[in-house]
Amino acid sequence: MAMQISFDSVTADYQIGPIRSPRVLDSIDLLLPAGSFTAVIGHTGSGKSSLLKAMNGLIIPYDGKVTIGQTTIKAGKNKKALRAIRQKVGMVFQFPESQLFAETVEKDICFGPLNFGVSLVEAKSIARVVLKQVGLEPSILSKSPLSLSGGQKRRVAIAGILAMQPDILVLDEPGAGLDPIGKREILQMITAWHKEKKLTTVIVTHDMDDVALYADDVVVMEHGQVVKHDKVRSFFTDVNQLNEWHVDVPQARSLQLQIEQETGIKLPGVCLTLPELADALIEVGIV
């Protein structure tokens, strides 16, 4: 069952020793509908990761509230709410392979489900399912996570989150540091899982082609604030505005603009992918 995520004038920051970082999240109002697939983009340090952490109760707002489905997190004690939220929200951190610790891949994948009271037998059968989902062979289950390659580790770490069977999937740059093919496979796998399980998915990425290919909505963050929340297609329409946020344009869209400039012919619609662009070109008769 999909759940919506709502931020109600959320302000939050980190406290390191005596130093308070100023407003890492700054009065954020945001509503991500149930079943949506949202990409979060923005400069480094703009607060994308912090936004995701707030969705999982890893940072607690000191002002405003975060509501996940029926559960609310706000300043103060939230013990019950936190447990409920962490069960519902599966969070894949940046470079999640650094969280692997168990002797075997199987034990590591079962760690999350077991923490939330799933029986061992059931956890093991879930482990097999999610392992297949992330594109790994069952033979890997008995291996040590440390003996795997970087890409395999990443997949195992993601499998460990999928195994918790979350309703909401939150991923912080899941493709960072992987080869292009590995990255595409992981994103496609996530999209498939999103559709199959009817999840609400949020993904942080720096790659506008990922945004164009996989996401429905896009959220732009700047200095801890959400400066834009829009459908992907309409978002990439106004190129001048994008320049202002230093946001790149997806390859296909950029090629479309170039063609429009060279030929003087305006193509119908905004093309986000190469097949779309090809169709548009055929339609106006350029090719």
Binding site: K53, N56, L58, R83, R86, Q87, V89, G90, M91, F93, P96, S98, Q99, F101, A102, F111, G112, N115, F116, G160, I161, M164
Partner: peptide, 26 residues
């Protein structure tokens, strides 16, 4: 790492001493 394990349902500083020790392994 603590955040990551918390997200997977570990609760630090909860339960018996043995249980708390176990949460340190991950």
């Amino acid at each position: 790492v603590m955040d990551a394990q918390r997200a997977r349902g570990t609760e630090f500083g909860e339960g018996s001493l043995v249980k708390q020790m176990k949460t340190l392994v991950p």
